Measured scan of single mutants.
Amino acid sequence: MTEYKLVVVGAGGVGKSALTIQLIQNHFVDEYDPTIEDSYRKQVVIDGETCLLDILDTAGQEEYSAMRDQYMRTGEGFLCVFAINNTKSFEDIHHYREQIKRVKDSEDVPMVLVGNKCDLPSRTVDTKQAQDLARSYGIPFIETSAKTRQGVDDAFYTLVREIRKHKEKMSKDGKKKKKKSKTKCVIM
């Protein structure tokens, strides 16, 4: 069974824990209790493949930012979460993405942009803004509501699919490099 290491990042209060708990335990946590770091595991079937999701729910508070490099190193894919009623959390996505790329030393890291709290009427981040940002990053965008469960499975499952595509691409690139290195030079 394939294991996928997913990391949920975003500013404090955007609903990272609520999304994760909704996926794992099928219930909505409405009281806000700032996370330092929590880890969850769940076995699911995605596109006919049974897999184990190892999900790291991270601290959004700035005082825990020193811990970010460590979990970013171990993560295979990242859910970059903002709240649709919090423009600052949307603007912060850029910083999370840049930090992930720096730590992973790669421009090509599996990510999904997630606009959470889409059940709320007080939207300050337009869907088109988020779609445009995701398009500019070359990553999928999904709106979710941890409260109603809308888009929750889709967000995590899409990230797994992005990781699969990335692994497939990397193995193809690896095979191309191996083929090239088999060419021999004969000096007579």
Rank of each mutant, 00 (worst) to 15 (best):
K175I: 11
V45E: 03
S136M: 14
T183K: 14
V29P: 04
S122G: 13
V109G: 03
G60C: 07
L56M: 06
Q61L: 14
H166A: 12
C51I: 02
E107M: 14
A66S: 04
G15H: 02
K165A: 10
N26E: 03
I55N: 05
Q131H: 08
L23Y: 13
E98Q: 03
Q129Y: 13
G12S: 07
T124V: 10
K88S: 09
G15D: 04
T50Y: 02
K167N: 12
L113K: 03
G10P: 02
A83H: 10
S17I: 05
L52P: 01
I24Y: 05
S65G: 10
N116A: 14
K177W: 07
D119H: 12
I139S: 06
Y64P: 05
G77T: 07
A11P: 11
K101I: 13
K117H: 14
K104V: 12
C51V: 05
A130V: 09
T50M: 03
R164D: 06
D57V: 00
T35F: 00
H166M: 05
Y137A: 07
R41Y: 03
V109F: 11
K16A: 00
K167E: 09
T50F: 02
L120C: 13
K169I: 11
E31Q: 03
D54E: 09
K101M: 12
S17K: 00
V7H: 14
M72I: 14
R41V: 05
I55M: 04
P121T: 13
V14F: 12
G12R: 01
V7A: 07
T124N: 10
T124H: 10
G12C: 14
K178E: 09
Q22Y: 01
A11W: 08
N26D: 03
S122K: 10
D132F: 10
R73V: 11
T20A: 10
D108W: 03
V81P: 09
I142M: 08
D173W: 14
F90Y: 14
L79N: 04
R149E: 07
K104Q: 14
V114K: 04
G10N: 03
E31W: 07
V14N: 08
E49A: 08
V44S: 07
S106N: 10
K16V: 00
D38T: 01
G75Y: 05
M188Y: 14
M111Q: 07
Q61P: 06
T58C: 06
D105S: 11
K178A: 09
A11R: 08
R73I: 07
G48N: 11
Y71K: 00
K128C: 09
D153R: 03
V160W: 06
R41L: 04
K117S: 14
K42R: 12
F78D: 07
G60M: 05
K165C: 02
E37G: 00
S181R: 13
E162G: 07
D30N: 10
Y137R: 08
V186A: 11
N86G: 12
G13S: 09
R41C: 04
V14D: 14
A155V: 08
K178H: 11
D108H: 13
S181D: 15
P34R: 00
G10V: 04
R73K: 07
R123M: 13
Q25E: 07
A18H: 01
N116L: 15
Y32F: 01
G60K: 01
V109N: 05
A155Q: 04
E31S: 02
V44Q: 10
F28M: 01
I46A: 03
T124C: 11
D173P: 09
K101R: 11
N26R: 03
T74C: 15
A130T: 09
A134F: 06
M188R: 15
Y71M: 15
D126K: 11
D30V: 06
V14G: 09
D57P: 00
F78N: 03
F90S: 10
R97M: 15
F28E: 00
I139L: 13
K117T: 15
F90W: 14
E162V: 05
M188N: 14
K165L: 13
Y71R: 00
V114N: 00
F156Y: 14
E162D: 06
T2M: 11
F82P: 03
T35C: 15
Y137G: 08
D33I: 08
A18M: 02
D126Q: 08
E162P: 01
V152E: 05
P34M: 03
